[in-house]
């Protein structure tokens, strides 16, 4: 982090921190503009852009028609020709409508043209379950995009990182996809003022421990932290890593932690199979850290079904704190 001016730290919500980051980016660079559905006077479906349109006008806080494919493509074209768009999807699920532009265009243009162009594009995806919005408004699809060379994919878990990663994304010459968990928008946290960046591709060790490494993403970081505190009663000292970036993944932080603890639990909300945890597990299994594993790797991920509506069902299909607790106990006590 490189705080420059206004180093004071305030308590802001995750959504406010993102808004502040966009405000700073708009203020600092006239080529930055916001695009998305209902981000102007409405303030965004989750009130993240808020009243920025009043400060910067409709030319720089642009409402788009409900045209995810077209809108995403306009953002790609604008990014190729001198603008730095921050494109908001109303729900991450709608990325499916725009996959062509994200995957075939944004991610590949630079490569296809032999490195002669860049696509400085930021896309924001409100993601995750827990809002009772059911199957088409609750997904965690970071692994889909994490599978695409050419994209960078981040998942901030705190207000501080939400701001720092967004400002890092704006400064990045390549397309950066930011997955924001909807349940985190209201979460408060300490946020430094002014401009700073959180490095893309660098995980954060949220809690140092020696018995088991818990690599978590997004909202799961908080569940993992809660579990880690409770595990103290069992004399289990868990290390919690906030992955923060899905692509490029921070090998060093994860591997050195596993070398230390010998045990790995991956916790993520996306569907377990072929998800982020599969990549983390494989990364460890393929590395020299394998030789330090003293128990099978445990993945806690989303169930093999769409997100259901009923609140109890909805809770049951994504990992919860007690699941992490039980997994940690099992793995440390040598029961798995």
């Amino acid at each position: 982090m490189n705080a420059q001016n206004e180093p004071e730290i305030r308590e802001l919500s995750y959504a406010e921190a993102i808004r502040e980051a966009m405000d700073i980016a708009l203020e600092a660079d006239p080529s930055v503009l916001l695009m998305g559905e209902d981000i102007g006077v409405y303030g965004g479906a989750f009130q993240v852009t808020g009243d920025l349109v009043e400060k910067y006008g409709t030319d720089r806080v642009m409402d788009t028609p409900i045209s995810e494919l077209g809108g995403a493509g306009v953002a790609v074209g604008a990014a190729l020709t001198g603008l730095k768009p921050i494109f908001e999807f109303q729900f991450s699920d709608f990325a499916a409508l725009a996959m062509e532009q994200i995957v075939n265009q944004a991610a590949k243009v630079r490569f296809m043209l032999g490195g002669s162009v860049s696509v400085p594009l930021v896309m924001r995806f409100p993601a995750g379950s827990g809002t009772g919005a059911a199957a088409q408004h609750s997904q965690s699809i970071e692994a889909w995009l994490g599978h695409v060379p050419g994209l960078k994919v981040v998942q901030p878990s705190t207000p501080e990182d939400a701001k720092g990663l967004l400002l890092a994304a704006v400064a990045d010459p390549d397309p950066v996809m930011i997955f924001e968990h909807k349940l985190l928008y209201k979460m408060k946290g300490q946020v430094p003022g002014g401009h700073y960046t959180t490095p893309i591709g660098k995980a954060a060790i949220r809690r140092v421990g020696k018995d088991v490494t818990i690599v978590a993403t997004s909202i799961m970081v908080h569940k993992a932290m809660e579990a880690a505190e409770q595990l103290r009663a069992d004399d289990i000292d868990a290390e919690v890593i906030d992955l923060r970036t899905v692509r490029p993944m921070d090998r060093d932080t994860v591997l050195s932690s596993v070398r230390k603890t010998g045990r790995l639990i991956c916790v993520y909300e996306g569907v377990k199979t072929l998800g982020v945890g599969a990549e983390i597990s494989a990364m460890v299994a393929e590395s020299d850290a394998f030789d330090f594993l003293d128990a099978p790797i445990v993945r806690l991920g989303g169930a093999e079904c769409p997100i259901p509506y009923n609140p109890e069902l909805e809770k049951a299909v994504v990992p919860q704190m007690p699941d992490i607790l039980a997994a940690a106990r099992d793995i440390v006590k040598g029961r798995v």
Binding site: G70, G73, V74, G77, A78, T81, G82, L83, Q101, Q105
Partner: peptide, 18 residues
């Protein structure tokens, strides 16, 4: 694939006044 990208390029030209 190029249709929305062309619109984006035109948006840049308009915003940047090129």
């Amino acid at each position: 694939g190029g249709l929305p990208i062309a619109v984006g390029a035109a948006l840049s030209a308009k915003r940047l006044g090129t």
